[in-house]
């Protein structure tokens, strides 16, 4: 029988609590806390230098935090008995000896966990590298290395995946491939944390977003929620603008004239439609406007960009 505490814990595959790490005078992680649950792709977003990679390295036991806890399946990484079966990671695509063939690179890792060569061959096929399995990694393009890194991450069929900027260097085909792969992995019930500094990419892939800046949590939200939060009112076009504006003003909404229509704040498109229908006012266009996710991201992280142009210029 599981206690209530254990039951609550099951859902938290990745737990980061009050994580702090300083390099010299700068804090790479500054009290960062968040959780990642299974079954979704969670985007780990932040400007360059915001602590994403450091956080992932701490999660993998590669770097030690000054304080706080980074847990995978409720345990510290170094305590995992057979880590490749629990966590798969893609950190730096170029990681690997250039002399080694793709197949040998994977076999070196597979052997540490007693994983057979058959699994290696199967994975090379899955990531589209079967044809170059016996070629040296040194001659691989960045995109091929990313695919090899993904194969390495999937080696132990882990429930948790940590992918650091996996779309870097991929061509459009590769990007679409990895997007679908991440969605498939999440749909299989796995926990997928994907870091990126590009909001546009995450908007297409992720369901949830953990946004960090200067080592701190800025937002832990869903993509839909973020879009709602950055809504910019409703634009309405109608031949009887003044009439509708007056009616809307009565309901407490703010109305202002804007290029060829009226901009409404404080009222949803549905409410405006209902109101217009009740008054018999024809509507040509009702458009909910929201800041693009890109803008939302820029706004969120505006205060936390580590290397700003003007700072560099000084």
């Amino acid at each position: 029988m599981r206690g209530p505490d254990a039951a609550a814990r099951v859902g938290r595959m990745i737990e980061v609590r009050e994580l702090t790490k300083r390099y010299g005078g700068t804090a790479a992680l500054d009290g960062l806390s968040f959780e990642v649950r299974p079954g979704t792709v969670t985007g780990f977003l932040g400007p360059n230098g915001s602590g994403k990679s450091t956080c992932m390295r701490v999660l993998l036991g590669l770097a030690a935090a000054d304080s706080g806890a980074a847990l995978v399946n409720g345990r510290r990484y170094r305590e995992l008995e057979r880590p490749l079966h629990e966590v798969g990671a893609l950190l730096d695509a170029s990681a690997g000896h250039g002399d080694r063939t793709a197949r040998d690179h994977l076999r070196c890792l597979a052997r540490t966990h007693g994983i057979g060569d058959r699994r290696v061959t199967g994975l090379l096929e899955r990531v589209g590298l079967a044809g170059v399995a016996r070629r040296r990694v040194g001659g691989f393009s960045l995109g091929m290395r990313q695919r090899l890194g993904i194969a390495a991450a999937l080696l132990g069929d882990p429930g948790v995946l940590l992918l650091d900027e996996p779309v870097n260097g991929l061509d459009p085909d590769g990007i679409r491939w990895i997007r679908e792969l991440m969605r498939t992995l999440a749909a299989e019930g796995r926990t997928v944390l994907v870091s990126s500094h590009l909001m546009g990419e995450m908007a297409l892939t992720a369901d949830r977003l953990v946004v960090v800046g200067r080592g701190r949590l800025i937002a832990d939200t869903s993509v839909a929620e973020l879009e709602r939060r950055f809504r910019r009112g409703v634009l309405v076009r109608t031949p009887r603008g003044a009439e509708l504006a007056a009616a809307l003003a009565e309901t407490g909404a703010t109305v202002s004239a804007e290029d060829g229509g009226i901009a409404v704040h404080g009222s949803t498109a549905e409410e405006i439609g209902e109101l217009a229908a009740a008054r018999g006012i024809p509507l040509y266009e009702v458009a909910t406007r929201s800041a693009s996710l890109e803008e939302a991201y820029m706004e969120l992280t505006a205060g936390s960009v580590a290397h700003r142009a003007e700072e560099v210029a000084r």
């Binding site: 036991g61 590669l62 990484y77 880590p83 170029s94 990681a95 690997g96 000896h97 250039g98 890792l109």
Partner: peptide, 18 residues
Amino acid sequence: TAEHATGMIRVSLAAVPR
């Protein structure tokens, strides 16, 4: 040192954290 030079060390230590 070849592991440090190529970044393989991170992959290796992720597989063998001890």
